[in-house]
Design a protein around this nucleic acid. Sequence first.
DNA 1: CACTAAATGTTATAATTTTAACATTCACGC
DNA 2: GCGTGAATGTTAAAATTATAACATTTAGTG
Lengths: 255, 255
Amino acid sequence: MNGRSAQRLAKLQEALASGGTLHLRDAAELCDVSEMTIRRDLTTQPTAMTLLGGRLVMANYPGVTPIYDLTEQQASHYQAKYRLCQRVLAFIEEGDTLFIDCGSTLIPLLSQLSHFRELTVVTYALNVANAVAALPNMRLVLLGGLFYAASQSFGSDNMAAAIERLGINKALISAAGVDLERGVSCFHFHEVAPKQAAIATAMQRLLVVDASKFGVVRPAYFAALDDFDVVVTDEEGAPQLLEGHGRDVPAVTVA
Amino acid sequence: MNGRSAQRLAKLQEALASGGTLHLRDAAELCDVSEMTIRRDLTTQPTAMTLLGGRLVMANYPGVTPIYDLTEQQASHYQAKYRLCQRVLAFIEEGDTLFIDCGSTLIPLLSQLSHFRELTVVTYALNVANAVAALPNMRLVLLGGLFYAASQSFGSDNMAAAIERLGINKALISAAGVDLERGVSCFHFHEVAPKQAAIATAMQRLLVVDASKFGVVRPAYFAALDDFDVVVTDEEGAPQLLEGHGRDVPAVTVA
DNA sequence: CACTAAATGTTATAATTTTAACATTCACGC
DNA sequence: GCGTGAATGTTAAAATTATAACATTTAGTG
């Protein structure tokens, strides 16, 4: 433990507080020590900063997502979601007005939508909106309200009414749990109203879920399985969906 | 221009959307191309990502905005905005419900808000929402609608009504033009309703504009200068604001 | 089906960053 | 002042990342 060490780090953190990066050489100059000393400070002392390619950046800031490397597992998990969304893509047509649910499942779909010339996306999720906003030739309608960080989505008392006013063509719904008998559920209660409204108003309803969701029940039920026209799932999910059921299961597409 | 380039970048951006970094080698593997291709994508196409020490990071991620490659002019311009926002900060109190306007002027304010324990932010701008969503202890209300990419904001026919339902304490309004006689203007017509509604309902109204906005007129007028209680501007803006006027000018704060 | 141009891959090289080892300086008690 | 250990600086080598040049593949065209 060294008082100067801590003092230098505090100074640097202050410099970075407004965001940005500081090259190690500049950090050293700022503190009037050698680069090696800054390096040692960073490894010796606990700090909210990290060194990335010779540059100092803020990480682990209270509440701010820390800088970390995506693990291979995370990357491959993303690949699976990507394949699922490739399947969903087959259902989308030029001119559609899509309702896109919150969560991470449908995110990989969005960049694929840039192929279409005329598409409207309706969502109540911030991450979905950001992905769509980055695309050209896309009409985006975000249903606002109070922000729920856990699901990156918004909730408001008149969201259902707002959704029913829109001419939604296809509803792409995701879920946190699918139980063949009990129904389809999610974590957060504020998601129930928009999901149900989208299911009620859309002309075609797709449930997009990977295998891990089957047999799971989450706090908030929002639909029965046969409320959907199509279920898109992966190789592992399909058998679970079909077994012990055969009558009122929607069409199934496997990624 | 290359469609695949854009598609790859979109895919990577999605993978990084929830934060973190992705090593170039993993990014190349994910897209099934060579590292060189990803490098070229990044330099060829406009993107929100940047390469930092061989790792791909979201450039607009809180704390990772790379300022080192900005021109000095840009850096100083940002510094000016930052100072302006520092002044605005003095008007904000614990427990406030703030209306925050769209544009880039007020963005540097947002990261400073993390010092407060209890704050509500109301906005109709996507970039503002993203900055606030990254902060802890913050209540965020986003007014949704149809997305306008040029101003990164939303517009809807009932936005004014939605704003007037909220208990907004202080309205922080920015503008593209301030003419001492003709009034305050912005570029986009859909911004007029929310700005006016916020001005109408807020208990305190602050106009935040740097010197470059004075004497400029933009397509859409939305207020008179004396609709505001305070004008926050910089050293160069203050004299322009005061000259030839003296009666109905609001209090002026200089950054 | 050959031709062309764009896109991508490969390789070698340059530049940068990281690490390790050792030298030097500084603070402080005796 | 001297000795001691911590802190810092310096240097060289290793590892990593970036760049440039050229080879190869691919997509589109006549």
